[in-house]
């Protein structure tokens, strides 16, 4: 399979999913203009980071990336909606953060005590959020979300993906400082 990742609209969650796939599922990543997932000549018509996460998570059956029961999978769907809804909506952002902070209090990962595409989606939504970066830099971000975000950021596969991101994206991150 081949993933074309858009430089302008980097599908960070999808890149993290690729990095966590079982070895037998090989996805070659190239950079381009729009996100596109292909298998040979077959295009799957999935272009958003979230639908690519879902697609790859389903392909990786046997892994726990998209949960391993009906309720786990549905909880993950809930967080995917949450990442592109409340977390990405400026008027709801602080409510979303305090909800997330409460949920993360006693746990390390969002669903089923293990890394899933829910974590990839929420981490992506936080990472690209200016308000989040501002709160982190000013030391006022909620404590549990901060712990969660930093824990994920320092995992080897997250570091690898962060390093691989195009320069444009890194520049905008630097300008936040």
């Amino acid at each position: 399979m081949k993933l074309v990742a858009s430089r302008a609209n980097v599908p960070i969650g999808a890149l993290l999913t690729v990095e966590h796939l079982p070895a037998k599922l090989c996805v070659e990543v190239t950079w381009g203009d729009i996100n596109d997932l292909r298998d040979g000549d077959k295009s799957f018509n999935v272009t958003s980071s979230l639908s690519i996460c879902r697609y790859l998570g389903r392909m990786a059956s046997g892994s726990k990336l998209y949960g391993s029961s009906a309720i786990e999978r549905t909880e993950i769907d809930h967080w995917l909606d949450f990442s592109c809804g409340y977390v990405s909506c400026s008027t709801q952002f602080n409510n979303a953060l305090s909800h997330l902070d409460k949920v993360l209090g006693p746990i390390t990962y969002l669903v089923a005590d293990t890394l899933t595409i829910a974590d990839f989606a929420i981490w992506e939504a936080l990472r690209v959020n200016q308000e989040w970066n501002k709160q982190v830099n000013n030391g006022i971000a909620p404590v549990n979300v901060t712990r969660y975000y930093n824990h994920l950021s320092n995992l080897p596969k997250f570091l690898k993906v962060t390093k691989s991101l195009p320069k444009v994206e890194m520049k905008s991150q630097e300008s936040v400082k």
């Binding site: 298998d39 389903r58 391993s68 029961s69």
Partner: peptide, 15 residues
């Protein structure tokens, strides 16, 4: 379920 790249089913265990 098949886990190959061309797998056609994504079935979950009966819950």
């Amino acid at each position: 379920s098949s886990s190959s790249v061309t797998g056609t089913t994504t079935s979950l265990p009966n819950n």
